[in-house]
Write a protein that binds this DNA or RNA. Structure first.
Lengths: 137, 137
DNA sequence: AGAACAAAAATTTAACACAATTTAAAGCAA
DNA sequence: TTGCTTTAAATTGTGTTAAATTTTTGTTCT
């Protein structure tokens, strides 16, 4: 059963290989997902969004973003992300995917009211489907 | 190509679901592995080894053990493990599988000279195969 | 009516087989 | 010897099928 008509493209940003592997597996099993892209760092994500995407139809619909990453964390990524001068990325939904219980992260999430959701690791297929439903509403 | 004649049973002890998922995937792709068991905690591992194994042929040949786990860490597990009063577990090889750089963990590993190897996460198929080769030598 | 059990449906997980990409290796030529 | 090309090997990715688990539904019995 596909919960939505349109097919969604998902970008996962996480420095942990095992997490990425699990996330991709869950995403690809969902009938509403047409493609998944994994990157290991926020830096790679910026590079991907700015350089690698040539056609608008290639841009992700949803980004699942880890917070705790070396070099550039999730919040720092978002600061850069929103400055990307491109119509391409305007309506990409952002979902925080973190195992953090840190109140400062929760506050960060609440203060940035453009973010779609805050999902606790590990991702599971039910949780993932809920996010997709949220995107379509 | 199977590097060994006998088929090996692997037990993974890790509290992270994503890590377990990746580990299992890698292990099951190896032709020398006949079965994999995953447990989420050291406590479950003890329970599994003491209670769930009835036949000697069911016991694992290798245990991949995470160090940093809540409630009971890897070293604490080993202390309990070696006290298990059962011939069943005598010649199980122990491999530490951790992302820790902590010198105290390295020292712990060196001081316990019965341990087969210390492997850094994330596990990959080459690394895994190397461990299997070590077991057979 | 409510609890409990059993059957059916649906969802999740695992197993398998195949394709594609990447990596390593061997051989040859400059 | 160095670099390049071809071949082989191995890792990774993908899709399909089958098994197992969970949820739902309906029926019976108290």
């Amino acid at each position: 059963m596909s919960i939505v008509d349109k097919q969604l493209r998902i970008l996962f940003i996480d420095d942990d290989k095992a997490t990425n592997f699990l996330n991709k597996h869950i995403a690809k099993k969902n009938a509403s997902v047409s493609s998944t892209v994994l990157v290991d760092s926020a830096f790679e994500a910026i590079d991907y969004l700015e350089k690698k995407i040539v056609n608008p139809e290639d841009r992700p619909d949803i980004i699942f973003l880890d917070i705790n990453m070396p070099a550039m964390n999730g919040w720092e990524f978002l600061d850069v992300f929103y400055k990307i001068d491109s119509g391409l990325i305007k309506d990409i939904e952002i979902v925080i995917l973190s195992s953090s219980d840190d109140p400062s992260d929760i506050n960060q999430f609440k203060s940035r009211n453009t973010l779609l959701d805050f999902v606790k690791k590990p991702l599971d297929s039910k949780l993932f489907n809920d996010v997709l439903l949220k995107v379509c509403s």
